[in-house]
């Protein structure tokens, strides 16, 4: 095995090097990029995406994709926003539980349709993407939740906290990342998720309940998208039925895929996904600094997805060749 192949295996290292190179280049072109403000912007932009990426990563590791998460986010944000209009005193913890539950139910619906009817998850979630988005409009009556509808203690959640004034959502998303890491890396269920994605037939033969594992991934993915809805309301201070969460699924998927999660299932890590999202966040902040118009952002993300997919396929091919290639 060559050094190059070893390098291909440790994807986190690859993405980390890209980040380092990118940051150095950006800092040389414009030293302003290295200011605290830039990095504060990076870390404020990340939590929302990061939390969703954790769920998406789990779904992709078990060989599926959920593209309805943007709509789930919007729905949970609208629900919690409407509740705030009625009960401005609703505590943060209760809000978290409510949004998590709303997302969980929607995720489980996705998972149920996918496992019960055996249709590709992208087609199913393309359907629920619209279905849930429509529900957002029905529930809200098309009305935006305004800044003054969101209680102060919710807004401050994304601005400060008891801990060195680090924004609460950053701490909270950090906790979610750590938990996801522990579950995926060290729990029995987590390893069963990897096994299911790696080889579903073998997983079934070894007595793993593949349906249960798949449902779990979709459920958590929806749940985290629901929590992201609360983050959204807190950070942006408004929820708009037509804007909130639209297209966010592709940013999340981009981050997960460049983080080294293989679309063919079975591999991917929390660290890689974190670095993937971090890279996207840095690009996001660096673009104006580098005088690249913000309009280019989506094209860059799209290019990254396509390149990552192609690279992934090439790596799989190379690995097959290495291991002697059964029926390669």
């Amino acid at each position: 095995m060559t050094l190059f192949d070893k390098f291909l295996r440790i994807r986190e290292l690859g993405i980390f090097s890209i980040i380092v190179v990118f940051v150095i280049v950006a800092a040389i072109i414009d030293p302003r990029f290295m200011t605290l403000d830039s990095w504060r912007a990076v870390f404020l932009a990340i939590p929302l995406i990061l939390v969703m990426a954790m769920g998406q990563m789990m779904v992709i590791i078990c060989r599926h994709v959920d593209i309805s998460i943007g709509s789930i986010l919007a729905f949970s944000a609208i629900v919690i926003g409407l509740l705030y209009i009625q009960f401005p005193g609703l505590s943060l913890w209760l809000s978290l539980i409510i949004t998590a539950f709303v997302g969980l139910v929607m995720g489980l619906i996705n998972g149920f349709i996918v496992t019960r009817f055996n249709v590709h998850s992208i087609i199913v979630t393309l359907g629920t993407l619209s279905l849930y988005r429509g529900l957002v409009f029905i529930v809200s009556g098309g009305r935006q939740i305004d800044r003054n509808d969101i209680p102060e203690h919710v807004v401050s959640f994304s601005q400060t906290s008891f801990l060195f004034s680090i924004p609460g959502i950053l701490i909270f998303s950090g906790i979610i990342v750590v938990i996801t890491h522990l579950v995926m890396r060290h729990s029995v269920l987590g390893r069963e998720i990897y096994a299911t994605g790696s080889n579903p037939v073998a997983a079934h033969l070894k007595g793993i309940n593949v349906t249960k594992v798949t449902l779990f991934c979709f459920g958590i993915c929806g749940m985290l998208a629901g929590v992201a809805g609360l983050f959204y309301a807190s950070r942006f201070g408004y929820v708009n039925p037509g804007v909130t969460g639209v297209g966010i699924e592709f940013i999340v998927i981009a981050g997960v895929i460049i983080g080294g999660t293989s679309i063919t299932g079975g591999s991917g890590s929390v660290l890689g996904t974190f670095l993937g999202i971090l890279l996207l966040g840095i690009i996001n902040v660096a673009l104006p600094v580098l005088n690249i118009p913000g309009e280019f952002q989506k094209a860059i993300y799209g290019l990254i997805i396509v390149v990552a997919l192609a690279l992934d396929q090439l790596i799989i091919y190379r690995m097959k060749k290495l291991s002697g290639g059964i029926n390669a």
Binding site: R191, A195, S198
Partner: peptide, 18 residues
């Protein structure tokens, strides 16, 4: 062999009955 190529040897041995 029905193996999980992304997992460790020990996990392959104990998968399903950890």
């Amino acid at each position: 062999p029905q193996s999980f190529s992304h997992l460790s040897v020990a996990e392959n041995i104990f998968m399903g009955h950890m």
